[in-house]
Amino acid sequence: GEDLPLPPGWSVDWTMRGRKYYIDHNTNTTHWSHPLESGPSSG
C-alpha cells in the first residue's frame, strides 16, 4: 500500500528475510500490516 505516516510511538523495521513489519513501542507489539491500513477498530 501507500507509505502512510506512522502514529506516535511506532517504527518500521525489516526481518532478516527483508520483510517489512511495524513496531508499536506503546504496547511493545509487532504487526505485519500498517496500523492505519487495517480496518476501523473500536476502542
Rank of each mutant, 00 (worst) to 15 (best):
E37Y: 11
Y21L: 05
N28A: 07
S38F: 11
L6E: 14
G43P: 13
H31D: 01
T27P: 00
H31N: 04
S41R: 07
G43K: 12
R17N: 15
G18W: 05
Y22R: 00
W10Y: 01
I23N: 02
L36G: 08
T15F: 03
E2V: 12
T27G: 03
P40I: 13
R19S: 08
S33V: 14
V12E: 07
E2P: 12
D3P: 08
W10V: 02
L36Q: 06
G9L: 02
G9N: 07
W10Q: 00
D13A: 15
H34S: 05
T30N: 08
S33G: 08
S33W: 11
D3V: 10
W32I: 04
Y22T: 00
R19L: 12
P35L: 02
V12D: 03
W14T: 08
G1Q: 12
R17V: 10
L36I: 07
S11H: 04
R17F: 15
P5H: 09
N26F: 06
T30Q: 09
S42K: 14
S41K: 09
G43T: 11
H31Q: 10
E2S: 12
E37V: 14
R17G: 15
W10H: 00
G43S: 12
N28Q: 09
P35E: 03
Y21M: 05
K20M: 07
I23S: 03
W10S: 01
S42L: 12
I23C: 00
E37P: 06
R17L: 15
W14K: 08
V12A: 07
G9C: 02
G18S: 01
T27D: 05
P40C: 15
W14Q: 07
G43H: 13
D13E: 15
G18F: 04
G39D: 13
R19N: 11
S41W: 09
W14R: 09
V12R: 05
K20R: 08
S33M: 10
N26G: 05
P35F: 03
G43Y: 11
P35N: 02
W14S: 06
W32S: 05
D13Y: 14
S33A: 12
T30R: 14
W32K: 03
H25Y: 06
V12I: 12
L4V: 09
G9P: 00
S41N: 11
N26R: 06
G39P: 13
P5T: 09
H34F: 06
W32L: 05
V12N: 02
T27F: 04
P7M: 02
I23L: 06
E37T: 11
P40D: 12
L36Y: 09
S33P: 03
S11K: 05
D13C: 15
P8W: 08
P40R: 08
P5N: 09
D24W: 02
H31L: 04
P7A: 02
E2D: 12
M16F: 13
G18V: 03
L4E: 10
R19V: 15
K20Q: 06
K20L: 08
E37S: 14
S33K: 14
